[in-house]
C-alpha cells in the first residue's frame, strides 16, 4: 500500500471527528456535512503537502477550520438562527428527539458563544487536544486559546444568569 493510500485510509478514520468539530462550529447538521465534504476535497487534493510524521488530525482540523472561517466571509456555513429558534425536528437528522432534549441546553449554551470560543471548548474538552495543539489548529498563541476559554466561561455565566441572551455576532 502506498503512503498516499495509507494517508487516505487514515483520513477516513478521522471523518467522524471532522463531522463533530464541524457541527460544533456551524451549529447546523446540513452545513456541517457540507463543510466536511469541502475539507475532504481540499485535504485529498493536497495530500502531498502533508508532512509525514506530523499530526494528520490537526492538519485536517486546520483545513476544516480555515474553510469554515472563509465560508463565514461568504456567509456560507454559518447558522445565523439561534438554536432555540430552530424547529427541533431539523435536529432529528442529528439525533433522536430524546437525544435532542438531552442536549438542547448544551446546544443553546454553545450557540451563545462565538465560533472561536466554541472551537476552544470543543478542541480541548471533547477532542482532548492540549492547549498547544489547539493553538496550532487555531493558528494563534496558547494564551489566546486560554483567554477564549475564559471568555466562553464568562459568556456562559451571563447566559445562565439571563444576560446577553443573544448569540455572539459572527466576526
Amino acid at each position: 500500500m502506498s503512503d498516499r493510500a495509507r494517508l487516505r485510509d487514515e483520513l477516513v478514520t478521522w471523518i467522524p471527528n471532522l463531522r463533530a468539530f464541524a457541527l460544533s462550529l456551524t451549529q447546523s447538521a446540513q452545513h456541517s456535512d457540507d463543510l466536511v465534504q469541502d475539507t475532504l476535497v481540499k485535504a485529498l487534493s493536497n495530500l502531498d503537502k502533508f508532512q509525514a510524521g506530523t499530526n494528520l488530525r490537526a492538519w485536517l482540523f486546520t483545513i476544516l477550520r480555515n474553510s469554515f472561517y472563509n465560508g463565514i466571509r461568504y456567509r456560507k456555513y454559518h447558522q445565523s438562527t439561534a438554536l432555540d429558534e430552530v424547529d427541533p425536528a431539523c435536529l432529528e437528522q442529528r439525533a433522536t428527539q430524546e437525544k435532542y432534549i438531552e442536549f438542547q441546553d448544551v446546544l443553546r449554551g454553545m450557540s451563545r458563544l462565538a465560533p472561536e470560543q466554541r472551537e476552544a471548548i470543543v478542541l480541548i474538552a471533547a477532542e482532548g487536544l492540549s492547549y498547544e495543539e489547539a493553538a496550532a489548529v487555531c493558528n494563534c498563541p496558547v494564551g489566546t486559546v486560554k483567554s477564549r476559554l475564559s471568555r466562553a466561561r464568562q459568556r456562559l455565566e451571563e447566559y445562565a444568569n439571563g444576560k446577553g441572551a443573544r448569540a455572539e455576532p459572527v466576526p
Binding site: L23, S24, F103, A125, A126
Partner: peptide
C-alpha cells in the same frame, strides 16, 4: 454535556 454530545456524533 458537550463531551456526550460530541461522542454521540462520533458514534454516528
Amino acid at each position: 454535556g458537550i463531551v456526550r454530545f460530541y461522542e454521540t456524533v462520533l458514534n454516528e
